[in-house]
């Protein structure tokens, strides 16, 4: 009784029931295991967010301390290896899952009317995910990170006319330096996640609005 009363009180003010009806209690076409990949991507995003927040407790984005602080996370902090391990592998898995999810959408032609915008935003999400992978790769400030980022940013520099300028913007100067590390860090933990969160919000809204697409039948 107590709970029912409390729930009724809250529902009156928050509209919980309407929310439940609108988001959770929806009819859907018969499900398929391939349809779970989108929510798996969301799960990975949340997991990356959580482990990323935990990593930032000890991580220091400066060339002097970035490497040491990660060594400390791996060896000095309880479960640091697990948190970083999940974040490291989660990144790879997220790219893979997002990619397969997009392939599924392509194969079932779910990007067609009325879900064109959902696809468009999905492509944006793919690019952001790759951007997260790219910026996150530099943060450990180890040999692999340093030199791979040097090469990758040089690729941007090969564009005619604006290339050298893009290169300087990416690196925060002509060379890979403390400035590069801190701007990659900012992009990795603030800018890209903010964009991702916003895009995911719209993506989800559109999915609820149009419903999940059904698998095409012979006559579709």
């Amino acid at each position: 009784m107590m709970w029912k009363k409390l729930f009724a009180w809250l529902d009156e003010r928050l509209g919980l029931n309407d929310l439940y009806k609108a988001t959770l209690d929806r009819p859907e076409p018969k499900g398929n295991w391939w349809n779970t990949l989108g929510s798996a991507s969301l799960f990975l995003f949340l997991l990356q967010g959580a482990t990323g927040i935990f990593l930032s407790v000890y991580y220091t984005p400066s060339p002097d301390h970035a490497y040491d602080s990660i060594q400390y996370i791996m060896n000095g902090v309880a479960f640091g290896w697990l948190i970083r391990g999940i974040h490291h592998w989660g990144a790879s898995l997220m790219v893979l899952v997002v990619f397969i999810h997009m392939l599924r959408v392509f194969v079932t032609a779910s990007y067609k009317y009325p879900r064109e915008l959902t696809w468009l935003i999905g492509v944006g999400l793919l690019l952001c995910t790759l951007g997260m992978g790219f910026t996150g790769y530099l943060l450990p400030w180890d040999q692999k990170a340093y030199w791979a980022t040097t090469v990758a940013t040089s690729i941007a520099g090969s564009v005619p006319w604006v290339g050298p300028f893009i290169l300087r913007v990416l690196r925060g100067g002509t060379d890979l330096s403390a400035l590069t590390l801190s701007r990659f860090f900012a992009a990795h933990i603030w800018m890209l996640p903010a964009v991702l969160t916003g895009l995911i919000g719209v993506h989800l809204y559109l999915i609820i609005k149009h419903g999940e697409s059904e698998f095409p039948g012979r006559d579709d």
């Binding site: 997991l47 959580a50 935990f54 407790v57 902090v77 309880a78 479960f79 948190i83």
Partner: peptide
């Protein structure tokens, strides 16, 4: 499974 290691991870320096 996320929360338990996370708490240990956060309070570790205090221990």
């Amino acid at each position: 499974v996320v929360a338990v290691p996370a708490i240990a991870y956060l309070i570790d320096p205090a221990l």
